[in-house]
Structure formats: C-alpha cells, structure tokens
Design a protein around this nucleic acid. Structure first.
Length: 577
RNA sequence: CGGGGCGUAGCGCAGCUUGGCUAGCGCGCUUGGUUCGGGACCAAGAGGUCGCGGGUUCAAAUCCCGCCGCCCCGACCA
C-alpha cells in the first residue's frame, strides 16, 4: 500500500472535543472522525486496526468452540416486552420509527438492538428441542445501539459501537459453568493477544445488574480514564469491582455488656460528624447511620456504620429494586416523624430495614431518636432494631484488609472491556427455550452470556500504549506492521529500493505502507511516530551512502542499519514473533 | 436529567468585560520560488450567515431572552 493511495488525515493539534489520550490520538492520527456525539466514522487506518481486534476476537471464539451467527439489529419491540427486563431496557433503547411520522408497516414497532439475549433466546426456543443438541454457544460481532445517557471519550462510550456478544445454552448448571469457564479462558487470550500485560489486565468479580444471573466477572484494563474502580489485593489474587468488593474488617470492641437504651438531647446535630465533636464525642464507628431510599416507589431504611459509605449497587442488588433514589425530606418526615439528622430505626416496623453486615453484633451504639434534636445511646442493633435483611452494603476503602488474606487492598480505576455472566434460566423460562432430557422431561436451558466491547478494546489499546509522540501499537493490532519512510521519492535509486523492500515484505505477509509523499523528512517522521507503526524503515541518501536502510522500532527506539535483504529478513522475523 | 464550561474559516485560538470603522492570529489549503534526515522559509491568494431564532440600539461577534450543538463531573453500561 502506498500512502498516496489511501487517506490518512493527521492533525498537528488535537481537536478541543477530545480529553483523554486515546481520543486525541485517534483523531490526530487520522483513525476516525466524529459525525455527532458518540457517533464516529472509521477512516482507513482506524478500520484496519479495528479489524485486527475483530479478527483476534473471532479466532479465539472459534477456537473455544463458539459458533458465529448474525442476528438483526432491528428487532420487534413486542419481543422485548415479552422478555424479563423490558422496564429496565427501554431506557437505553432507540426506537426505529418511520422518519416521516407515519404508522409502522404491518409487523409492529421496531427497536434497535442494544444487546441480544431476547433474540437469541427466542431463536433457541425454536431451534433447540433436545439435550442431544446441547451444549451450544452462539456468538456474533455486530453494531449495537444504545441511547447512552452520556457518551464519553470517543469510542470508550459511544451510542453506536461494535460488540461481540455470545450466548451459551446448557442442559445443566454444571454444564453452564463449563461453558462459562471456556469463555473466561478465551477472553483472557483475546486481551493478551491485543497486547495487554498481566499488570494491567484484570478479571474481576462483578455485579450482574439488570442482566440477572448468579455470578459474573469483568475483564478490566487499568487506566486513569476508566469508569470503574477495582479493588485488588497486593498479596493474593483477590480482585473485584468496588461494586462487589468486600473486605475483612477488624471487630470493634463495644464494652463489657449491652446497656439500656437512653435518649439524650442533641440540639442542632445534623450529621455524623457533628456528633463526633464536643460535647458528644461519639466516634463515627459507634454511630448507626440511617438512610431512607425510595426503591421502586416504596420506602426502605438502610443502616450503615457511621463512617461507612453506602454502595448503591450493592443496595440495588440487596433490594432487587430496578430504580431507587434517596428520599426527599417531605417524604421522610411523615414516614419517620423526624427530619434527617435525627433519624433512627429503633422500634421501627412496617418498613423494610436493610442493615450492613458491619453492624451485626454491635451494641452500645448511638443513633437518631426519630425526634428532632434527640439521639439514642446504648443501642444494641440486633436487640433493638427489627432488621429485615442483613447484607453487605458498604464500599470498601483502600487499605482495608483483603477478605481472603487480610493484606491491604488497593483501588484503581479501570476500563471494562468484557463481561461474562452465568444467566441461569431467567431468559429461557420467560421466552420458552426448553429442551427434553433423556426421560422426555422438559427443562429450561441454562444460559450464559458473554460480551466484549470490540471498538472499546481498540480505544483501550491506544489509551494504554502511547507516548509523547503518539500511538505505540502492539504488533497484533497495528494498522500496518511497517512504514517505509522514503525520504526522496523523486530519486529513482531510493524509490526502487523502497519498492523492492515493500514488495518483498508483502510477499511475506507483512502489512506495509510506503510513505511516497512529497514531504520533508521531519514531516514523515512525525507522522510515522504519531500513527505509531511498530517498525519504520527509513530510506534516504544518508543511509544508502552507508550501505543500507534504517530499521527502527517504535516502542524502544532501537535502530539498525541493514542492507535491504537483511532488513526484510529482520522485519519478517520481528512481525512473526 | 442535575451541576460546570464552550460554540468566531478545515483545526487550534484572540476579540465580547466597556457595542462602532474592512472580524484578526497560528496551523492547514492554492499558486510561484527557495529549501530538503525530526512538523522549513519567502511572496501572492482562496476560505466566515461570528451555532440558530428573536429582542434592545442609529449601530450587535460583543448586551438581553429562547432554542440547538459540543465537552467535562454524576446516575447507566461493552
């Protein structure tokens, strides 16, 4: 490929819209252009790099025994309404209505697919009848559409993006776990092949969210711009999304024996911190924090240790509510009889009370008296409060002891590239994906689902591999392996050598672009560094006078002067390594 | 949707506070010339409904109102 035959519009400055390195570089290196917020055109180099990632994903899926299919992006709304999560799903879906506002053609209303559990399960309901057909694992690589509340960082969170989504069907729970484990191993290989090292790549325990199902793990790559936080142990292998992470807290001493509950005046006290000050001097970890939430339009009480932050994802998981928010004061007062600052759960009934595990067994605690300006002391949580459900509700903090080995936990931001779930029978039951076992009895298939953000992975590669001069592509994902910087395209001798090296490399299957532009050397070097081709071959009068061409590694800066034939050999070896 | 910021040539910006004369600068682009191993130089050009609509005014990029778009922080997720 010759540079002049393609289109690589590099920019000297990054557009103001880009904030993070990968977004800036994708625009500057001419990989993509924005059409609208969260919607991008892939230019030739961006497309090539994208296709590399896609190929790695496809190869590893096939190797793991998954079967590629292609489902429609346009889907009947009615199918979603029959599925188990229509209420939660509507928020992110685009409806595909006729643009002129006219009625839908026969067949009903359509939506653009944000994911495909409903479609695949309905397909499985029609196609799978017998245990003899199981297990099956279908996948596709396809454009998804989501009405992201806030598109962000270029390809990191886009309204239109490419996802590899896969769905396994098994007869038994054990089988589903096997399918899941096979995918986990395949995902590990995909991301390793994309260039991520064990230091930055983490497979973490995660919350299942609206997807439902028993357990799930996310593949994360640590990065400053990541939208997730992961907690991991410095000593052992424990690592989890903070939405799920736990820690082993030291037991606190509450004194000899539980005292009786006593009310005392606390005029003007509004916060946990207020109570820690004179004249009260109640440590935050001796207080019970009482929070009121509206979960699916019903109030719930949430009890936390005073110094612990609530983790809303864990609360959502504990309550099973789809939508919840903090209650307003005008909702709290009629319910509790007091305003925030003096709230407490002692003696409270008729409202679900969720308590964090860190409060279990505690006594001689202080909490609001449900009377403005008063608190209670001597509270024994299990004796005095009718807890509906104990649950892990708090966010772990950096430095807390690892739940497995008690070494300090660290917290880092990370980008989620893949997510794998065991779904169970949530979808198959609802949509009738059943099979007959050996005895002729009908059972719902046990499902798993597995996603990789393919376009996001591309962005993450750039986010992780760049320096002050531009992108530093891992060989496996680079749009071209080699750039030949021909410094004097007008000089016949140089041009001939460049063409010969180019052709020889192509014959060996090396992807090479020949910079034949009529530009100054410095300009070509800057462009090559910005785009980040792993290997650059420089052909100019200087090198030729010394009897060869220069072969330079982008990542290390290492440079060798070699005769053309040697250079070709060296490069072929490096590319195949 | 809540909070913050921005919208002036393809890109990056100045001008707006305190309204006024032909709307400016750098990069990029075109033409000619000189250059040619780390984003060259000289000269001559092309390119703008100052996001859109309304208002105030003799006069609006500049002041006021409304809308739209983009970016950042939060709730959602591959």
């Amino acid at each position: 490929m010759k540079w002049n035959q393609t289109h690589i519009p590099t920019l000297k400055e990054s557009p103001a819209e880009a904030e993070i390195p990968s977004h800036k570089l994708m625009l500057r290196a001419g990989l993509m252009r924005k059409l609208a917020g969260g919607i991008y055109t892939f230019l030739p180099l961006g497309l090539r790099a994208y296709e590399k990632v896609e190929r790695i994903v496809r190869e590893e899926m096939n190797r793991a025994g998954a079967i590629e299919i292609r489902m429609p992006a346009l889907q009947p709304k009615e199918l979603w309404q029959r599925g188990p999560r229509w209420d939660a799903a509507q928020r992110v879906m685009f409806a595909a209505s006729p643009a002129d506002g006219s009625k839908f053609a026969p067949g009903g209303e359509l939506v653009l697919g944000p994911t495909h559990e409903e479609v695949i399960t309905s397909l499985a309901a029609d196609e799978i009848h017998s245990y003899r057909q199981l297990p099956k694992n279908f996948y596709q690589i396809q454009t998804k559409f989501r009405n992201e509340i806030r598109p962000r960082f270029g390809l990191m969170r886009a309204k239109e993006f490419v996802m590899k989504d896969g769905y396994s069907f098994d007869a038994t729970e054990d089988g589903a776990v096997k399918s899941y484990e096979a995918m986990r191993a395949a995902y590990q290989r995909v991301f390793e092949r994309c260039g991520f090292g064990t230091q930055q790549l983490k497979c973490v325990w995660a919350d299942s969210g609206v997807m439902g199902g028993k357990y799930s793990q996310e593949f994360m790559v640590t990065a400053e711009c990541g939208e997730n936080e992961i907690a991991f142990c410095e000593k052992c292998s424990y690592v989890a999304n903070v939405e799920k992470a736990q820690s082993k807290l030291a037991r606190l001493e509450d004194g000899e024996a539980p005292a009786n509950v006593g009310k005392f005046p606390t005029p003007g006290v509004k916060t946990i911190e207020d109570l820690t000050k004179p004249p009260f001097l109640v440590a935050a970890d001796r207080q019970v924090k009482t929070l009121i939430f509206i979960a699916d339009s019903k109030p719930v009480l949430v009890l936390m240790r005073g110094d612990h932050p609530l983790n809303e994802v864990k609360l959502a998981a504990a309550t099973g509510a789809i939508e919840f928010r903090a209650a307003r004061e005008d909702e709290i007062v009629p319910l509790m009889g007091a305003r925030p600052g003096s709230l407490g759960a002692v003696g409270k009934s008729g409202v679900p009370i969720y308590a964090d595990e860190a409060l279990r067994g505690r006594f001689n605690m202080v909490t609001g008296a449900n009377e403005d300006g008063f608190h209670l002391r001597g509270v024994c949580v299990e004796r005095d409060i009718k807890v509906t459900k104990w649950a892990d509700l708090r966010s772990v903090a950096a430095g807390e002891p690892c739940p497995e080995c008690a070494a300090p936990l660290r917290i880092q931001r990370a980008i989620e590239l893949g997510h794998i779930f065991i779904l169970g029978t949530k979808y198959s039951e609802k949509l009738g994906a059943n099979y007959l076992d050996e005895k002729g009895q009908s059972h719902p298939c046990v499902m798993g689902c597995y996603g990789i953000g393919v376009t996001r992975t591309l962005a993450a590669v750039i986010e992780c591999f760049n320096d002050k001069d531009g992108i530093v592509w891992p060989m496996a994902v680079a749009p071209f392996h080699v750039c030949i910087s021909l410094l004097d395209p007008a000089k016949e001798a140089s041009a001939k050598i460049a063409q010969e090296i180019h052709d020889a490399l192509e014959r060996e299957g090396v992807e090479v672009i020949l910079d034949d532009r009529d530009e100054r050397p410095g300009f070509k070097f800057k462009d090559a560094d910005l785009i980040g081709f792993p290997i650059r071959v420089t052909i100019g009068e200087k090198s030729l006078a010394k009897g060869g061409v220069e072969v330079k590694q982008r990542a290390t800066g290492e440079m060798k002067l070699l005769p053309p034939a040697e250079a070709v050999k060296e490069i072929v070896a490096a590319v195949r390594r």
